[in-house]
Design a protein around this nucleic acid. Structure first.
Lengths: 237, 237
DNA sequence: GTCTATAGACGGATAGAC
DNA sequence: GTCTATCCGTCTATAGAC
């Protein structure tokens, strides 16, 4: 069925995957019908079921074909860094570049659908479809199992729990970064400079600053808002 | 019809809004049917149309009732800080506390649905339903019009374009921060300490670190991954 | 592999009794 | 305000001709 590198002409199956990818990011999974997909792919209504068996199986294949390649590149980049470091911990900037930079480079590819896919991926991280969540967790287990330990070694003084949270925050920042390069967000129309080429350094310095921020051991920033009683109720007093 | 502070018993209308809020965050707008909503609210199938006119109008009201209060609190917090500063720029940590801290406090309220709503809001930021995007942009115009200038004054040496992007990144980090306190994300099962009370200082120090990170004027972090030709292609060489 | 036709369930919305 | 009954469109999936 599926030898990996069978670079054939864009047949019906591939057109379906491309069309689905683009429609999912625009309308979500539930908001995209097989009729919309087959219509955009100039294929017959029955084609989705013939090629994939069901709509859910198509959804899964949309992610599988891209994520496999993205995570392979991420691991290859980390391998390279660790080889160069020859035993020493890899620098945090290098680790972030290997994980987030690789993803942003895929997101910068507008010609082969990489940009569309990365928008879809960012959106899906907050869409808790039961079966897609399970699938993504499995696809990510390998990379997280390599990148998290690399960060633990690079930042031995930061509690692992904190690194975990900050990694999570960084994924959120990246997700919005990619979505923000289109006219998608609240800030649409406010960006004068949405040049995708500048996005990578922009995001990278933000992520590094956040990752290396001093820890907050105290009660937080509450004190700056203190001095009021029950002002936070629902009804206007 | 709608005097603001009519604190009555939870009638059908409110039960519909609460049920819709919870179902939307779980299944999305398209994935939630009016039958699911009226079923969960123990109301009649026709109730949605009677009370709101349409499903779309219900969606809009779910956001309106919460966002109005959240943004009122955000502006009140900023007012307080600016009054204390009496003309001087407000410190960045204060501005972030007023915007993101206020939101996280709403997200920490699990009893009155604030947590559910903030998860929904974070999810919706990446769901580009045409009419909801328009609606959110209008609801946010007021707060952004106050908070962005406050940040411009607080960080006069940082280009405004950069502050805009970093604000955007911060919203992504906050969105994932809130989603991550549930069993929603890729990291589910990896967090040993998901105590919501610690989330605010965790996120705040990350955001501040990112906001104040040194600017990247050079080509970015590419150099760390350079030295390879066309390795990034789709097929394995 | 591609097509037409259709089954069978579910979607939002409404009419009209109470 | 709440209910039942129902209209009518769309959904996924499949059967079967070509």
């Amino acid at each position: 069925m599926s030898d990996a590198s069978r670079a054939s002409v864009p047949d019906t199956r591939d057109r379906l995957l491309d069309a689905a990818e683009a429609l999912f990011v625009e309308h979500g999974f539930e908001g995209t019908s097989t009729r919309m997909i087959t219509g955009a792919a100039r294929a017959n209504l029955a084609a989705v079921n013939y090629h994939f068996g069901s709509k859910d199986a198509l959804v899964q294949e949309v992610f599988r074909r891209r994520l496999a390649e993205l995570n392979r590149q991420r691991l290859a980049a980390l391998d390279r860094l660790e080889a160069e470091a020859s035993g020493a911990p890899v620098r945090p900037s290098g680790i972030l570049g290997a994980f987030f930079g690789t993803a942003l480079q895929l997101a910068a590819d507008t010609e082969h659908g990489g940009h569309t896919f990365m928008r879809l991926l960012g959106r899906t991280n907050t869409e808790p479809n039961a079966f897609i969540r399970q699938f993504l967790a499995e696809e990510y287990a390998g990379v997280l199992g390599r990148f998290l330990p690399a960060l633990y070694r690079a930042l031995p003084d930061v509690p692992r729990e904190e690194i975990l949270w900050r990694f999570h925050f960084m994924m959120g920042a990246m997700s919005y970064a990619i979505a923000g390069t289109d006219g998608l967000q609240l800030f649409a129309g406010r960006f004068d400079d949405a040049d995708p080429a500048r996005l990578i350094p922009r995001l990278m310095s933000f992520l590094l600053g956040g990752l290396r921020a001093p820890l907050a051991e105290f009660g937080g920033f509450r004190d700056e808002r203190a001095g009021e009683g029950d002002e936070g109720g629902l009804a206007a007093a």
